[in-house]
Simulated assay, not measured.
Amino acid sequence: MTTLPPDETSQAATPAIDEPLERLARFAFDWADTLCDPDHGCGPYHRAWSMIRLLTKNSALPAGGAFIADGLHRAASGGRCRVLLAGAADTGLVALVLNALRAQEIEPEIVLADRCATTIEQNRLFARHLGMRFELHRCDISALTCRPVDAVVMHSFLNFLPVPARQAMIDALSRALRPGGLLIAHQRLDVGRRKHDPQPIKENRALLESAARARGYPDPLARAIGAAGADFWSNTFAHAPTPEAEFLVLLANAGFNLISLSRPLAAATNSPLFIAGQSRETPQAAILAERMPPR
């Protein structure tokens, strides 16, 4: 296992691609209560995520951009790369992937699978804005069927699944990949997300409301955005963590050959999950694995 320097792309504030985040954030804020399945419990997450990114995170994209870009370059074939995103909080991960491929003059083909209609519809709007077509699958990823892809990008997703469901999901990602295709995962291992304390949540709610007012949102809307942020930070959403040894077993069972597993040095993150007044360091692992040909 190697240790890498901090990933500077986690601090990227201005995406190269035109991600109309204000429009997309307002869509999720307005529609998550309708589109998110109450049984999934993701409504507070999707309602607040993009709005927090917009107002207090300077539209930052997910961490791990350099690692993901390198993996996509390795997976591309003939100047093209068909990429499956295994779940997404909003449009930020798609923007990161598009940036990485376009910077290397690789033609992107985006496939997104997520069981939540809010995320799917946000990305449909994003694709329309870009004049592109994304292949969107609203489904449980373990049941996904699609044409083979060159790469799968999984970012901070595994711990949102109950432990018994994780093998079926990794198996589905393996089935989606062409032989020799790559799984590119940026994932917390060993530790789960801790719940925020009430006082920092109160303080960050005020910061979020202030940022909303500064952007010109009327006071009732700013207060509603602050309340949504407080609701988001008060929930953990994630299930139990995935120890490294268990993750490696999941990969092996699904027919993956581990190429590398590195733990970048802890670096400040701009994820909406992390709030002022508490540590912003997140121990993420960067995992690259190849789908082996069936025996």
Rank of each mutant, 00 (worst) to 15 (best):
S174L: 05
E8I: 15
I275C: 02
A228H: 03
N159H: 10
T34C: 05
P108V: 09
A25E: 06
F126H: 14
E19F: 14
A222Y: 09
R166M: 06
S174N: 04
D219W: 07
L208H: 06
S260T: 14
V249P: 01
D171G: 05
R133C: 03
A25I: 05
T145P: 00
E135W: 03
Q187I: 10
G192S: 14
L161C: 01
S174K: 10
Q284S: 12
A224N: 02
C81K: 07
C139L: 11
L84T: 08
R223N: 02
A25P: 10
A151I: 13
P272L: 09
H155Y: 13
R291M: 10
R74N: 08
A66R: 13
R223K: 14
A76Y: 09
H137D: 01
V83K: 03
P20E: 09
L273N: 11
P148I: 02
E107M: 07
A289K: 09
P283H: 05
E121M: 12
H196K: 12
K57I: 01
P220F: 06
I225S: 03
A245R: 14
P38M: 04
A254M: 02
E19C: 13
H40P: 00
A268K: 13
L24P: 09
A245T: 14
P294G: 04
R291G: 10
P6I: 15
I259P: 00
V97W: 07
R263L: 03
T9L: 15
L72Q: 05
R194A: 10
S210R: 15
Q199W: 11
E203S: 04
F232Q: 06
D37Q: 12
P272N: 08
P62E: 02
E105P: 00
Q278P: 01
C42S: 12
P5D: 11
R166Y: 10
A286L: 12
W233P: 08
Q122R: 12
T119K: 05
G181S: 11
H129R: 06
P294Q: 07
T269A: 13
H186W: 14
S10T: 13
R115I: 14
T236N: 09
R263D: 00
P62C: 01
I141Q: 09
A267I: 01
V83Q: 03
W49V: 00
F247R: 05
E8A: 15
Y217G: 00
I287Q: 04
L182N: 11
G131Y: 05
R82E: 01
R74G: 01
G79R: 08
C36R: 02
P148Y: 11
I287G: 06
Y217R: 00
H40D: 14
P243G: 08
